[in-house]
Design a protein around this nucleic acid. Sequence first.
RNA 1: GCACCCGUAGCUCAAUUGGAUAGAGUGGUGGCCUUCGAAGCCAUAGGUUGCAGGUUCGAGCCCUGCCGGGUGCGCCA
Length: 566
Amino acid sequence: MSRATFRAAIADAVSRAAEIDREEAAEQLVAPPRPEMGDFAFPCFLLSKKLKKVPPAIAAELAGKLSIGIFGVERVEATGPYVNFRLNKLQFAGAVLREAAVAGAEYGRSSEGAGKVVAIDYSSPNIAKPFHVGHLRSTIIGGALYRLFEKLGYGCVGINHLGDWGTQFGKQIVGVKHWGKPEDLSDLMALNQLYVKYHKEEETHPELANEAREWFRKQEAGDREALDLWRAIRDTSLDYFKRIYSRLGVQFDTYTGESFFNDKMEAVVDAAKARGLTSISDGALVIDLERVGIKTPALLKKADGATLYLTRDLAAAEYRHATYKFHKLLYVVGTGQSLHFQQLFEVLKLLGHEWAKDCAHVNFGLVKGMSTRKGEVIYLEELLNEARSRALKAMRETIEKRAEIDDEEAVAEAVGIGAIFFADLSKQRIKDYDFDWKRALSFEGDTGPYLMNAHARIAGIIRKCGVEIDPRADLAALVEPEAHLLVSLVSRYQDVLREAAKVHEPSILAQYLLELAHALHSGYNVLRVKDEEPKVAKARLLLLSVVKNVLASGLGILGIPALERM
RNA sequence: GCACCCGUAGCUCAAUUGGAUAGAGUGGUGGCCUUCGAAGCCAUAGGUUGCAGGUUCGAGCCCUGCCGGGUGCGCCA
């Protein structure tokens, strides 16, 4: 808020001096590339066209007109084609830090999303298969977006669209029937082994495929035994997933998976037919999408009459809209399914749903190189355990720290999670992700633990400095450029959250937190608190405590624990 | 073959969405722990932003064509 106040004051002055619209002026105000240049800059390129003068001349002229009387501004200077504004440090720090100090851990929260619902479909794994590293991105990105929108005041619905229906269950049941024991039904690893065994056997005994198809057919027809088996497998999987999610700190509001929509698809098919959208092609029921620029037609039903993925997603989208009246519906799914989502959104439009424009595919790049040398996938639990043990090893290298920590295992677990989450969330979603043990589990440099360390370090200062935090402290002592940089970064937090939400990109927040932690680490030597004069100590401590709150808030959104000690 | 995505320092990534001198980490080299946490800091080296055109006051970003990598392209999800 406070940053916006200063921005508005400058925009107002600029709009009067340059005779342009106030909003236009506010929009053009940017931050200069280097802090010495000032806090805001107004580029004069656009005016150049209108006034038929070169930008530097306009900048000089404007700077002259604006030299005095803008709220919070202590210097106006033309530098080349820009007019640079430097804020009064005391006024700026006062406004920013007081607001942040009062808000405490809630700093950054806003109510701009009040009354609006964002539904987010994420993680959505297939039942009866263990969680591996490839499932992580959707889970982590979706969880981060959930908490981000929540922070901005939106009501969020986390949807886990479980892959809990389909022909793979026929195969799973054949595996259980032929080679399994009754107790395997409640053991996910055993179930998975049976599934793998099925595929191996199928290579030499192709007739098993018919058996599997028959089981799934029975399942769809409501056969008692088939459904009982399916339910047991589903329950076992769900228990397992929930254990993983609790370890990751990820939550869902609903687990309405694919099976939930079994009885809701016929209505969509009927609606499409009624609108004359469908045709028969090679026996299958399709919707031609050539007219909207998609060459691949959408398949609603197979030649044998069975429904498909798309049919189910159409029914699900309609159900979600009816149930949640969402402002936005986000699908956090890999970019490999782009065509599917283009088709889905276009068909929703053709069905007359104007809300189709509120649906978005939050796509992300592939996770490559996640299998071991033997070609097996890396299970998530292996990764988490490895991260924990490496963190423990790193902790044990410094004895002083151990003395302060009472639950080493818990800290190591948190550090491991922090490293893994941040390795994923710090890059733009769209980029392919090369999984690499060394990089994913690194604790040095631009990593999750680096941010956690910045937070724990401030916590240590607060514990040991011998000064109390005072939100009303006199801030005149905050004269160092390092302090001003931190104030400026703190003031940007809300803007960063808004931008990250707007483009569904947690990496914007992650990059910002790195900047903040860098500024802290570089500055904290000159911003000592302990044994300084009380006035100086109090001012600096207030600044540091506010930085700590921002770190805690941002890390929380990313799903990374902010520890007091590590 | 067609469609979409990605090419920025040796490696992994940024760049305020078209703006000022393209920045971080890592790896290399050299420094900094008797002072609130060294999972840290400082310094130094490293670039024809894949190539070639175009658009304009201005392009890593937009347009066209190539080159390289990835993904997808009707009866799986």
